[in-house]
């Protein structure tokens, strides 16, 4: 948003500051106006990040995003366009998910970030730090304790419950994109439920590989209506999408938000004679022994030795603690 835009938002917040101020001063001005400033340690001016409004985005932007989220929840699986903001991180690093998280967070939330199931990867750590600093919310690595979980490429193994929000980072929200490059046409296809093309993709898979080789971003039909890209989660996670928590999807570069409300029917597309299988590596976790979790393959030496461990670090650690 431009400087002028920030100024327009001012009266609603507090109304001080003069014309001709430098951009950072305007931002500081907004910060004072934010309703959470007094209680929030993160907003302390002595801390660099404290110069931002709660959860980085200004209130108007968060409202706009919340409207898109509400619309998305009202029309499960439908891609709602939104005015994605420039975020202080590159596209592809979760700008969409971060904006959705920012619009959802309240000071009382407990925030968890996972990347490929792990809480300790660069991307997860950066985003967690980002919100620790700009929103001052509590963060956790425990799935069960988190109220908002931002994820890249996984759904936690621990079943989510009512009251939790799962925010997905989405690179390409359009499931029809690789077969139909025209956006005007794909939107029309969604509108008219013209989904033959989706099965053409699966047909091509079987023709080429003898089975449906799509292993991630496996297309689903939501509540019998919209075909949706579940973001690049492994197809192992697809059945989990019928859950008690709210699922929100944010695509920053593509400027789309979509959602699955709790307890919504989510069906993975397939053929009668090639039914959907939520496959995983045929091993147990080398660390916790779980046989029902999605595994990462880890090469352990130059001779090609390998081990399989849970990709969900929190789930694995919890099981190991319980066993100890």
């Amino acid at each position: 948003m431009s400087l002028a835009g920030l100024r327009q938002g001012k009266p609603e917040h507090a109304g001080h500051g003069e014309a001709g101020e430098q951009p950072h001063e305007v931002a500081a001005d907004i910060h004072f106006a934010a309703p959470f400033s007094k209680e929030n340690a993160g907003m302390d001016e002595s801390v660099p990040g404290g110069a931002y409004n709660f959860a980085y985005l200004d209130e108007e932007t968060k409202r706009m995003i919340r409207r898109a989220i509400l619309k998305g929840i009202a029309i499960p699986g439908y891609q709602v366009p939104f005015a994605s903001r420039e975020m202080p991180m590159p596209y592809g690093w979760g700008t969409g998910g971060v904006q959705v998280s920012a619009a959802c967070l309240t000071p009382d939330d407990s925030f968890k970030v996972i990347d490929q199931g792990a809480d300790d990867t660069t991307n997860a750590v950066s985003i967690r730090k980002f919100f620790e600093r700009t929103a001052g919310v509590e963060t956790t690595e425990r799935t069960a304790e988190a109220t908002v979980i931002q994820t890249r490429h996984r759904i936690p193994e621990t079943p989510l419950t009512e009251g939790q929000i799962l925010v997905y980072q989405v690179p390409i929200p359009e499931p029809l994109r690789f077969l139909e490059p025209r956006e005007t046409e794909t939107r029309r296809m969604h509108a008219l439920e013209d989904y033959g093309l989706m099965h053409v993709k699966l047909y091509e898979d079987i023709a080429r590989h003898g089975e449906i080789a799509t292993a991630y971003a496996y297309p689903v039909k939501v509540e019998g209506r919209y075909v949706m890209d579940p973001s690049p989660i492994p197809k192992f996670d697809n059945p989990k999408m019928e859950m008690a928590a709210i699922q929100l999807f944010g695509a920053g570069r593509e400027q789309r938000i979509y959602a699955i409300p709790p307890y919504t029917r989510v069906v993975s597309l397939d053929f009668e004679d090639h039914p959907f299988v939520a496959g995983k590596a045929p091993h147990d976790c080398a660390l916790c022994g779980a046989s029902d979790t999605y595994l990462d393959e880890i090469i352990t030496d130059d001779a090609g030795s390998r081990m399989y461990v849970c990709s969900d670090t929190d789930h694995c650690a919890t099981r190991q603690e319980a066993a100890a």
Partner: peptide
């Protein structure tokens, strides 16, 4: 898309689900 997929598209568009 392969020749087979091209021919099959209309069938799938009207609901054919048996590969």
């Amino acid at each position: 898309v392969s020749a087979g997929g091209n021919v099959g598209e209309r069938l799938m568009a009207v609901g054919a689900r048996h590969y």
